[in-house]
Structures are given as structure tokens and as C-alpha cells.
Design a binder for these strands. Structure first.
Lengths: 226, 226
DNA sequence: GCATGGATATAAGTATGCCCGTATACGCGC
DNA sequence: GCGCGTATACGGGCATACTTATATCCATGC
């Protein structure tokens, strides 16, 4: 009999999904750097599977915008220059402010509690790798009641695409403190059902993130195009 | 030596892409109806290829939201109920109004000419199957100067996802005439660089489309969930 | 000495076959 | 007669093997 966790949590049911999850995390936490070619048979040997599920996984990651695939040339981790980061953040502003605006009036108390607990977890969490996921969880909890599942999907996709860059932000203690302050302000505005205020805090929050990130990336050698 | 068309036009370079294109069109024009299971070996035999490129094509279409894949259960053409149509149109309003707002100030005269020519083509076109593509081309031409390629990509993706439903609209002569009137109003506003007016016309245009479509679908038996 | 053409190597695309999971139907037991 | 268990069939996931395309390097000719 299958374990309780697998049967309920709808865990990865195919090798391709498992591979995709491992690769996504490895790319997000920087183990595999931007621009790295992802050879099918190389990965196949490392994972201990054939190339087929690896191909499927790469296609899935391509759909998420994390890797690029050129026919007959193979896949490589998608490089992002600062212009693309700006694009992603511009879209996040657009999508998330709309989601928040729609969500605030119908936001259940339970979700607000959940969001607050996530913020406490962020403060307590010492493992850098978890911050990205917790950050995403906080934001999505607030948007949960927006009533448009497709919108939520888009938002999640953009979080995934930018994840490894967001982690650059969150590894900076100074930014992290500012971010948490804004998060708590945002949560408070949601509690007061003050949608307009919440949206303006969110916009400010995202704009700061975007600027900090663009500066960080243009300072490094990360801004080379693929 | 390879033909000129293939080498320059960047046409489909793999079988999987060709299959994906054919399937996308077949689904869009109703040849393959919503909910139809897409069996790998069945398609493989019909296309005369093996199941592998068909698998790749199905994954690609899944990423576009046109088909759904459940592990071990296979793929089927994604069903959309009226709620999902509403979601897509809500997103189109959000994404396209932003794109238009950004694009209008920088819209080159050439693009405006191009858009007008597309409108003339729509009036002249007698082949129903081409209307969807022309409709998309018109809209994208106006958004072209928005400066955010990722935004344009999202808009195109949503056009693709809703394509077969938009065609229901466009096959209605009455709606098509109204739509063309609005298109020309929209184009005129863009020519005057009146971004606010253009956006409000666009919102009205999309809202009408959404309402017409939801009514059409709820009238039919198409609204069953998958 | 440089450029161009061809050969070779590398890696992705494609084909085929097998295995395993899921669903459905039939039978047996209660 | 109804329900549960088992068996069989259908179909998708994965592996292995082969083909094709592209890039690089070397040789040859200008």
C-alpha cells in the first residue's frame, strides 16, 4: 500500500516531475548557474535514468521560463539580464496588485493567520534556501481569495522564474529586514480591509525589490545576455 | 540544400513542433473538440511518426494550456467552462490594457499602417479559419511598442488558449461587424495618441467579447467541466 | 596565410519495445 | 442481489538503439 503522504499530497508521480523539481531547486539556489548547458545524457547519468524523462523535465522547465531550448542545440539555464528582471517585476506589479485588490475584500481570517505565521517562520528560519519558498507562500496567501485561479498561476510562474534572483535579495540581511517590515505593514492593511493602502505598499515593496536587484545584477557579471 | 523558406522563416525545425502546430490549429478550428482524448499511438499512426515527438508536442500544448495531461491517464483537449473563459478575459483586460497604455506613445506609423491593413484583410477575408490569426495580429501590432516582450508573450499565450472560443465569436456576422467598428475606433484613438481613450475602447471591446462568449457557451452543452 | 569546403565527432531528435499503473469487467462470496 | 476482489486489457512512462543535424577542426587550394 502506498504511503499516506504520497496518496494525499499528490507528490510527483513521474520521474520527469521529480527531475524537474530537483533541477528547479538546483537552479534556484545557484547550484547550477545561469547559462550552464544542460546535456541530456549527462543529466541522465547523474540521475540514473534515461534521457526520456530528462527531456520531459527540460520541456517543463522551459515552459516555466527557467531554461531555454534550441532545437538540435540543446538546453541551457536561461540567462536573465537586468532588462528581463525589470520586465518580470513590472509584470509582478501588474498581476499581483490586481490579485491583491480582488482578494482583500474576501480574505478569510484563517488566511491572514496563515500569512502571519509564514512571516514568523521567515524571521525564525535560518536556512537560506527556504526563504524564497516562504516569501512566495506569504504573497500567495494574500492573493488566495482573488477568485481567478489562472491569475494565481501566472503569479506563481513569475515567482518561480525569478526565484534564483529573489534569493540574491533575501540573502542580504538589510534588504530582508526592510522586506519583513513591509510585509507586516502589508498584512496589517489587509486586516483593516484597506485594499488601496495594501496595494500601494505592495507596489512600493516590489519596486524596491526590482531596483535593489537590478543594481546588484548590473554590478556583477551576471548581466550578460545568452 | 535546404529550401529558402525553411532556412529564413525559422519554420518548425522538429517533427514535434510541426505536430504541435497541426494539433493547435485542429483544436482551434474545432476539428478536434474539447474533451477529446488524445492517444499517443493513435496520433502517431495518423501523423506517420513515432510516439516520442507526439509526446513532446502534447507537453508543449499542455504548457500553452490547450490540453491537459494527467500522469498515466493521458492527454485530452482542455475543456473550458464559462468561468474559465471569464478568467481569461479578465486577464486579457488587465494585460492588454497595460500593454496598450505603454505602447501608444511609442507606436510607429508603420505599425499603425500594418494594423490598418490587417483590418482591411479581415473585412476581405472569406476563410473563417484565418480570422482568429488576423484578429490576434491586429491586437499585437498595437501592443508592439510596449517595451515588455514578456508581456507580449503572455498576451499571445492567452490568445492561443482562447482561440477556438474566439472563433465562435468571429463566425457570428453581427459580432464581427461590431468588433470591426470597435477595432477602427481603437486604431483611430491610437493615431491621435489618445492612450486613455484607446484603453477604454479596448476594455469595452473585451468586455463585450467576454459577455457574448459566456452567453454562447452557457447556452450550449460546452460548459461541462472536464 | 587565409578562406573555404569537407569529414568527423558530439549531442539532440526519433523509433521501437517493454514494463507498470490504472480501469473495467467478471466472478465469487456473503 | 449486492459488494468486493481479482484478472485482463488498454495506454502511458521509461529504456535502449538508431538517425540526423550541427559545429569544429583540419586539409587543401587560392
Amino acid at each position: 500500500m502506498r504511503g499516506f503522504a504520497e496518496s494525499v499530497m499528490q507528490g510527483p508521480r513521474t520521474v520527469a516531475e521529480q527531475v524537474a523539481n530537483v533541477l528547479r531547486e538546483a537552479i534556484a539556489n545557484g547550484t547550477i548557474k545561469a547559462g550552464t548547458p544542460l546535456r541530456q545524457d549527462e543529466l541522465a547519468e547523474q540521475f540514473g535514468f534515461s534521457r526520456m524523462p530528462i527531456r520531459d523535465a527540460l520541456r517543463q522547465l522551459e515552459a516555466e521560463g527557467i531554461v531555454s531550448i534550441h532545437p538540435t542545440k540543446g538546453a541551457h539555464v536561461a540567462r536573465m539580464d537586468s532588462a528581463e528582471i525589470s520586465e518580470i517585476y513590472a509584470l509582478r506589479e501588474l498581476l499581483e496588485s490586481e490579485a491583491l485588490r480582488l482578494s482583500v475584500p474576501g480574505l478569510a481570517g484563517a488566511k491572514l493567520e496563515e500569512a502571519e505565521q509564514v512571516l514568523d517562520q521567515i524571521d525564525a528560519e535560518r536556512n537560506v534556501g527556504r526563504w524564497g519558498a516562504l516569501n512566495r507562500a506569504f504573497h500567495l496567501a494574500l492573493y488566495h481569495a482573488c477568485g481567478n485561479r489562472r491569475l494565481l498561476g501566472l503569479i506563481e510562474a513569475h515567482h518561480n522564474a525569478a526565484d534564483r534572483y529573489v534569493r540574491i535579495l533575501l540573502s542580504n540581511l538589510d534588504y530582508r529586514n526592510r522586506s519583513q517590515t513591509e510585509h507586516r505593514d502589508l498584512l496589517a492593511a489587509c486586516r483593516r480591509r484597506d485594499g488601496d493602502k495594501a496595494v500601494s505598499i505592495l507596489m512600493q515593496h516590489l519596486r524596491e525589490g526590482s531596483e535593489t536587484l537590478v543594481n546588484a545584477i548590473e554590478g556583477d557579471g551576471l548581466s550578460r545576455k545568452s
